[in-house]
Nucleic acid binder design. Sequence first.
DNA 1: TTTTTATGTCAACACTCCTGACGTAAATTG
DNA 2: CAATTTACGTCAGGAGTGTTGACATAAAAA
Lengths: 183, 183
Amino acid sequence: MADLSSPTLRRAPPRGDDRLFLTERKLRQGAELMFFAYRYFTEDADKLLTGRDYGRAHHRALHFIGRQPGISVAGLLEILAITKQSLARVLKPLIEDGLVRSETGADDRRKRLLYLTEEGAAFEAQLSMAQRERLISAFREAGPEAVEGFRRVMALMIDSERRDDILDFVYSNADVAHVETKE
Amino acid sequence: MADLSSPTLRRAPPRGDDRLFLTERKLRQGAELMFFAYRYFTEDADKLLTGRDYGRAHHRALHFIGRQPGISVAGLLEILAITKQSLARVLKPLIEDGLVRSETGADDRRKRLLYLTEEGAAFEAQLSMAQRERLISAFREAGPEAVEGFRRVMALMIDSERRDDILDFVYSNADVAHVETKE
DNA sequence: TTTTTATGTCAACACTCCTGACGTAAATTG
DNA sequence: CAATTTACGTCAGGAGTGTTGACATAAAAA
């Protein structure tokens, strides 16, 4: 591996200022790995989007609506962290095209509760599948311990103030239609 | 469901269908962690960019020029994986503003070799610093084994055809000006 | 009844990426 | 040396995603 060609890594680290040097390198490498990995991670689904009138933002909306059916517009806005005008441009065509259904809330009739239609769920599944195939092979080749490390590091990249909320969301059970009920 | 179409996942694991369920969950969680982590990862540097006339693409150009001083335009295009028209819109102002210097190649006078000026290097360092602080705390809290796992998984997200090239690049020693030579 | 909340929408703008087309200078090739 | 290829620059137009500001409506809450 390229690591061994590195004089720094080959040189026995005496625990002195060498630590700083190693850290500097690892940080830069970490940042670059984030860049390259994310680019390939999104690439597969993006390819399926081109040609249709949709983009990555539509995929994200579909994903989080499928993840939490009945989510309100405000809820979706908080997860996506965009403005309502940005969301509207994405959501409107999805509703008009019959991929997302918008229902008036039963308890609070101001709210619009969002659901995937069958067509929407199918499209979302197709997009996710492309993305997940990359994760599947990466996770399998890396091994369970590496995956656990990946999860730890990624979780710690989230702002500490928001981290618990977001991790609660990520690790919560999905009500999602496409999660097979084990029996 | 689409997962079931995957031979690997369909193949009965020792632990029964419970494994399948866990894997399905882990993949979705992994994808969501990628989304949230990357958003926060880029957020810090993005904040420093707003107000100036630059964006994330300018940061990337500055980073990779600083990473490999004297890189050609074609070399930069290959790393960034964008079109030359996209790069031009980013590179032109950086050169005009005196952050990047463009030199005619000595051996091949068609080539334009790119370097950061002092001002460019200072700006790039400022942007990277913001980004790396998040990595520093994440890496420190996660611990060295988790970081190793993170690196493995991220590396495996890269297309297998390009992986070796990119990893050679990422793990290669930087000629970078701001990397202190320990002695 | 007044205020606040949840949502929708119009308009304008910034950034990043794309495709297609054309031009120029320098290296390479026949 | 002439023709071709390579490296780079640039003009034009379009798509997608994000922003701010302003205004409107229906329904809940005070």
